[in-house]
């Protein structure tokens, strides 16, 4: 209780990430990231369709992998980014951390949804059904539920500043539980299906598949970073506008 005072630490790291500073330096990244992602997508798609052979086992359907694997990777990568932002909000009290967390959640949900759709479209010709309770797909589905829970919690709060810290706690609780969920689903999977001869990401992929896969994954990741940056900038602008709106309301009340 005694001399409890909160001073904002002003080392360079938080200076760099101060909303005003963030808006300035992030503006320079938009076009480079945009162009890079367009180029990567062009090269990736060209490789995916015109320059890689069909897989000897999966046949042509391996091309679905070129959009499924990047999205599955991004659904995990995005949650990792949110967990780091959550630690940033709670531990380092980083001014931009909760903005990054809030900007990433809907993107994560969208990528997870795409991973699920492409996964089931890939499953239909391979396993004969749109949804096979395979370990990896089930974990991805549960991850999707966690994303929805986070977005729902964000939206239930009116006061976004208080929401940030509480959602950060849930993000970290989720992050701790994801490995447990993965482990239990895999255990459950071996319980019901002793062995699927065909794991979702297939046997060690030969070189000809790696290049399109890697390019497409890079393309999607760069796109994600771009969208995340843009959404963070929008959130900063929105909070500035909200503050002005509050002032306007307060002025009007005083005036009336």
């Amino acid at each position: 209780m005694t001399d409890q005072s909160e001073t904002i630490s002003s080392n360079w790291f938080s200076q760099l990430a101060h909303p005003g500073m963030f808006m300035r330096w992030s503006a320079y990244l938009i076009w480079p990231l945009g162009l890079l992602s367009i180029v990567l997508f062009a090269v990736g798609l060209w490789f995916a369709f015109f320059h890689s052979p069909a897989d000897y086992q999966m046949g042509e359907t391996v091309r679905i992998m070129y959009v499924h694997v990047p999205n599955a990777w991004l659904s995990q990568f995005c949650y990792g980014l949110m967990a780091v932002s959550a630690v940033g909000t709670l531990v380092w009290r980083h001014p931009m951390a909760d903005v990054s967390m809030k900007a990433a959640a809907p993107l994560g949900a969208a990528f997870t949804a795409m991973a699920l759709v492409t996964g089931s479209l890939w499953g239909r010709p391979t396993w004969g059904t749109f949804w096979e309770w395979d370990g990896r797909m089930t974990s991805t589905l549960i991850l999707f539920l966690i994303y929805l829970g986070l977005i729902a919690l964000w939206r239930t709060f009116e006061d976004q500043l208080r929401a940030a810290k509480v959602v950060a706690v849930l993000t970290l609780v989720g992050a701790v539980n994801i490995p447990i969920i993965k482990f239990s689903v895999d255990w459950w999977n071996t319980l019901h299906q002793p062995s699927t001869f065909f794991r979702a990401d297939g046997p060690k992929a030969p070189a000809s598949i790696i290049t399109p896969l890697l390019t497409m994954t890079l393309a999607f990741t760069v796109l994600f970073l771009l969208l995340h940056l843009l959404r963070m900038r929008t959130e900063v602008t929105k909070r500035k506008a909200d503050r002005l709106e509050h002032l306007k309301i307060a002025r009007q009340q005083k005036g009336a």
Binding site: I142, L145, I146, L148, G149, A152, L153, T156, L170, V173, G174, N177, I180, I181, F183, S184, V185, W187, W188
Partner: peptide, 17 residues
């Protein structure tokens, strides 16, 4: 309304085991 939604996915391992 929201609390059960947050618990459900995290409770799946308990149900599995």
């Amino acid at each position: 309304v929201i609390a059960p939604i947050l618990v459900m996915p995290l409770a799946i391992p308990a149900v599995i085991f």
